[in-house]
Write a protein that binds this DNA or RNA. Structure first.
Lengths: 399, 399
DNA sequence: GACAAAATGTTTACGCTTGCAACATAACAG
DNA sequence: CTGTTATGTTGCAAGCGTAAACATTTTGTC
C-alpha cells in the first residue's frame, strides 16, 4: 500500500497493523514513563509473544530500553521494565516577549536540558532560526548521546497549523511571520509550530491535571491576554487552521470595551493581570509571588476587583461548559491565582451561568506542570509524528 | 484478542484489520450511496483482490448489493457498482411537542418509510415505547424484506449518552426520563438516544451542507429555543456526558434577562422565533411559510427586530468561531430564515466579533436536509455500530 | 531446604489477511 | 477485427498476531 499523501487512504494493510501496535506501545511508555512488559500485555490485549517482538523492535530502533525490575512485585517471573530511551528526543522552542527558551525533551515528556536567552525587547521572527540553531548545538554538546528527531514551537498567538505561519502574535509584535518555513530552512529536522495554549492543554492532558481525560479545557491567563486549548475525544482540538481555543475574545459581559484585537465586550478586556497588579501595588513579578500577594491581600479594592473578574470569568466558563461539556477545566497563569484567592467562588458563580446537567460533571483545577508546561507541550507536538509511527522515524534516524 | 468492554484495548490483531477495512468500505458506500468497486480500490489504497473479497463479505452479510453499471464509463472492463442493500436498515424516532415520527432508514441515509403520530399535548416518555413498537410493526409490514438493526432517537433536550437518560427536555416537559431503558425493555434492538441538534449536525456533516468537512458547527433555531451541534475532526463532539452544543445558553449580550433554564443574558432569551411571529402577525406556521413571510416583510418593526436578533446571533457566532475555528457554520430552523431576510448582514457583523484569522476561513450556509434532517440523524446514530463493525452486526442479524 | 504454585519470557507451528503477479474479461478505438 | 486499456479473478507468497508447549524466576509452604 503506497501513501502519496494527497488523500488519507482508508485501507489498512498488515504493515499498518504493526505500525499501530508499535505506536500504541510507544504511547503507553511515553505517558507512563516506564512500565512492565506484562502491563503492556494487559493494556493492549496482545499476546505475550507479540509484545516481546514489538518491544524488541522499539529497542532496536533506539526508542526504549528494557531493564530488570528492582523491587519485589509478587509471585512469578519478573517482567522487564520498558523505559523511554535517552538516545532520542525532540527540541522544544518557546519564544516569549522577554526571552526565548530552547530545550531538549525526551520521550516521557522529561525536560532533559534547557537554554534560555533573554531579550530586552521581543525577539523578531528572523532572529529565531540562528538562535535555535546555536542553542541546539550547545544543548547537543551537553547531551552527546541524544539524537533530536524534530522541533516543536509554542507561539503565543494564532498559528496556521498546516505550515507554521504565525498569523498574529500581539505579545511578540508579530504578524504573518512564516516561522515554520524560516526554521525549516535552517534546521535539518521536521518543524511544527502551534499555539501555546493548545500545547499547554495537550501537556496537561498527557502529564498534568487533565491526565487521561477525554474532554477538558485549559484556560490560561498571561500578561498579555487569555488563551486556551480544548481537548476533545482525547486529542487537542485545533479547528481547520489551528486557531481554535481563543477564549480570550469571547463575549463575556455588558461592558462593550474592546480588547487588543478589537472585539467588543470580550473576556480579556475585563479580566487582566495588569489591573490586579495595579491594585496590589506590585510590578511584573513572578507568577508565584503574584499569587502569594493576591491571596494574602485583604484590601477591599483588591477583593472587589477579584470578584468582578471572577464574575466575567464565570460567564465565559459557563459558555465553555454549555458548549463543550468538559470533564475538567484547568486554570493556568493568573487565572489560577484568581481562583485561589476566592476558593469555591468560581464554581458557585458557575451554577448561575451553565446548565445544571453539564455543570454537575465539570471540575475546576489548577494547572500542574508549572514552568515546564510549554516545553513539554512543544515536545508533545514534535513527538506526535514519532508516536504515531515509531518505525518510520527510527529509519529516518538511522539514515 | 478478547474484548471485555471494561477498558478499550489498544492492540490490533489481524481480525481488527479486517474489521477496519470492512468498516471503511461500508462507510464509503453509505456516504456515497453507491460507487464502483474500482473507486473503492482507489479510495482505500487496497488491492483489487482484497476489495473483491471484502465486498463479497459485505454482500454475504446482506449489507450491500453489486450490480452491473448502466451507462458508459470509458475504456476497460466495467467495474460493478456497490450499492447499499435494502435488506437492512434502522429505526429513527423523533419525539416532538405535537407529534412523534418513527421511520425506517436505510444505509445511505435514505428514509424508506415513515409514520407520524400527532399529539395534542406533548407525549409522555412512557407513551413512547408502545408507540414505537406499534409504529415499527406497521412499518415492517410495509417493508417486509427489511431487517431493522437498531433504534436511534433524536430528543430535543439534554441526553446522557451513556444510557439514554433524558436529563431535561423543556419542549416536551420531560425531566430525568430514562427513555433509553424504557425503549430497550420493549424493543428487541440496540437503542441509542441523543440530542437532536447533535444528530442534525451529524446528518448535515454526512449528507448535507457540511458534507465531508472536518470542522463545522450546526446552529438550529426551533420554536422553543436554540440548540447546536459541533463536528470536530470529522466526528460529532458530544462532551463527557453528551450535553455539548448548547449554544442557546451562551452569553450573548448586555441584557441580562434570563432564559427558560435561568441563564442570564443568553442567546435564546433574545433570539426567538416567537418575537418575529408576533411582529409579522402570523401564528405558528410552517417553516417555509414563516421564512417567506419574513423575507417578504418590509415592516420597519420587523426589520429592526431581525437586525436586533442578528446582532445577538453574531455575538454567539463570534464566540463559536473564536473557540472552534470551524470551516462552516450551518444555520437551521428560523436562524436560516433570519439570515435569508438580511443576506450578508450576519457575515458583516461577524467581522467585528471574531478574530480575523478564524473568520476568514469560515462560511455560513443554510441546512440542506430539510424535514428529513432528524430522521437521517437518528439513522446515523443507530447505524454507527454497524458502520464501525459490519461483520458483528451481520452475525447478529443472522442469529 | 525442597517442592509446588503462579506469573511471565521464549520458541515454534499455524491461521488469517493483504499483496503481487499472471491471466481472463469487457469495453472502446481505429 | 484487432490492439489497447482498465478491471475482475485466481493462486501463491509474505507479514503479523495467536496459541500452545516449554523454560525461567519468584513466592509461599511444609
Amino acid at each position: 500500500m503506497i501513501r502519496d499523501g494527497t488523500t488519507p487512504l482508508l485501507g489498512h494493510g498488515s504493515d499498518a497493523t504493526r505500525r499501530r501496535n508499535l505506536s500504541a506501545l510507544l504511547v503507553q511508555v511515553h505517558r507512563s514513563r516506564g512500565l512492565s512488559r506484562s502491563s503492556l500485555t494487559q493494556a493492549t490485549g496482545l499476546n505475550r509473544s507479540t509484545i516481546a517482538g514489538l518491544v524488541a523492535e522499539l529497542v532496536e530502533l533506539g526508542l526504549v530500553v528494557e531493564s530488570v525490575p528492582e523491587g519485589a512485585q509478587g509471585v512469578g517471573r519478573p517482567s522487564p521494565i520498558v523505559r523511554p530511551s535517552d538516545g532520542v528526543g525532540v527540541v522544544a522552542v518557546v519564544p516569549e516577549a522577554d526571552a526565548v527558551t530552547v530545550a531538549l525533551v525526551g520521550i516521557g515528556g522529561r525536560v532533559l536540558a534547557r537554554r534560555r536567552t533573554a531579550f530586552d525587547e521581543p525577539p523578531r521572527a528572523q532572529e529565531l532560526p540562528p538562535l535555535v540553531r546555536s542553542s541546539l548545538a550547545a544543548l547537543r554538546r551537553s547531551r552527546p548521546g541524544l539524537t533530536p528527531l524534530g522541533v516543536g514551537v509554542a507561539v503565543p498567538g494564532l498559528v496556521r497549523s498546516t505550515d507554521g505561519l504565525v498569523r498574529l502574535a500581539p505579545h511578540l509584535g508579530w504578524r504573518d511571520e512564516p516561522l515554520g518555513s524560516l526554521l525549516r530552512a535552517v534546521i535539518g529536522l521536521p518543524v511544527s509550530v502551534s499555539n501555546d495554549a493548545i500545547l499547554g492543554a495537550t501537556a496537561e492532558a498527557v502529564f498534568g491535571a487533565a491526565r487521561g481525560l477525554g474532554h477538558a479545557v485549559y484556560l490560561n491567563g498571561g500578561s498579555s491576554g487569555i488563551g486556551g486549548g480544548i481537548i476533545a475525544g482525547g486529542v487537542p482540538l485545533r479547528g481547520v487552521d489551528g486557531y481554535a481555543g481563543e477564549f480570550g475574545h469571547t463575549h463575556a459581559g455588558a461592558d462593550d470595551r474592546r480588547d487588543a484585537a478589537g472585539v467588543p465586550g470580550s473576556l480579556e478586556s475585563q479580566v487582566t493581570r495588569a489591573a490586579l497588579q495595579r491594585l496590589l501595588g506590585i510590578g511584573p513579578v513572578d507568577q508565584d509571588e503574584f499569587e502569594a500577594a493576591l491571596v494574602a491581600s485583604a484590601e477591599p479594592a483588591v477583593l472587589a476587583e477579584v470578584d468582578r473578574q471572577l464574575d466575567y470569568l464565570a460567564t465565559t466558563l459557563g459558555t465553555v461548559v454549555n458548549i463543550l461539556n468538559p470533564e475538567l477545566v484547568v486554570l493556568g497563569g493568573f487565572l489560577a491565582a484568581l481562583d485561589a484567592a476566592r476558593p469555591g467562588r468560581l464554581e458557585a458563580l458557575l451554577a448561575d451561568r451553565a446548565l445544571d446537567a453539564a455543570r454537575e460533571s465539570v471540575r475546576i483545577r489548577r494547572a500542574e506542570l508549572g514552568s515546564d508546561l510549554l516545553l513539554i507541550g512543544g515536545g508533545e507536538l514534535a513527538f506526535a509524528a514519532l508516536l504515531a509511527d515509531p518505525a518510520s522515524m527510527g529509519e529516518w534516524r538511522a539514515g
